[in-house]
Amino acid sequence: MRSLSLYQQGDSILHKLDPLTKILYIVVALALPSITASVKVSIACIISGLLLITFAKVLKNMVPIVSFSTIVILTIFIIQGMFYYANENVLFTLGPMTFYREGMLYALKIGLRIYNIITSVSLLVLTTRPSDLIEALVRKGLSPKIGYVLSSILQIIPQMTSMMNTITDAQRARGMETEGSLLVRMKAFIPLLGPMVMSSLVGTRERAMALEVRAFSSSRKKTFLNKPMESAQSTIWRVVLLIILIGAVIWRVTS
């Protein structure tokens, strides 16, 4: 079953850790560099994220995300290195292009921030079942309706892809060309989109009724099949993370 999720199955401590603690980790990892305003702290956060990801055995799943963002970061280096408004001291020249020290430093900061976001968010996304994350949020007061929309989207979009394939086949069966020049493809658009929209509408109404008869709008207090994932370990993690965060704030204020 295809699902729109980057989750990788596993049984590491990180897989078993509750989603909210992982969210707290993201908050702390993103806050620390801003609070301390230190490049070293930024790098330390990235390294700690990478270590945890390696530990959860999902490092290789980061490769596509990292390679994509590296391309983006390279362009940032080129643009800021050459055109940053405070550029003054030349760092090096490459043919007709001149790169400045200020711009390169600025790009480095942005780059580190991006990598930091990617590593800490990957830690959550790669080791958490989306449904667990949403359930944890619903327990903390997120509306079950929003929770439902978020979790069903992940499964229903791949289902829509297969519906699209059926519709394409049905129209090709009536002699419609779907491949070829841009004009041919544009002409094929309406015959494909029309049934798609109508089928989705019909399907959505049917599903809405099916949810109603399973007491989706019930005003009773909701229970959960799965036990909450929070454990003694979560508490330790959370305390440690909070201590680091508070420590950083105190250091910033006093120095």
Binding site: M163, G175, M176, P195
Partner: peptide, 30 residues
């Protein structure tokens, strides 16, 4: 497929997978 469609026709299971015109005659002459 477009060429073969002159010789062989296939009616799919679900009519909602193909209907897109706003009147029946246009739909059938497509």
């Amino acid at each position: 497929v477009a060429f073969l469609a002159q010789h062989i026709g296939l009616v799919f299971q679900n009519p909602n997978d193909q209907i897109f015109k706003s009147n029946v005659l246009d739909e059938v002459s497509f």
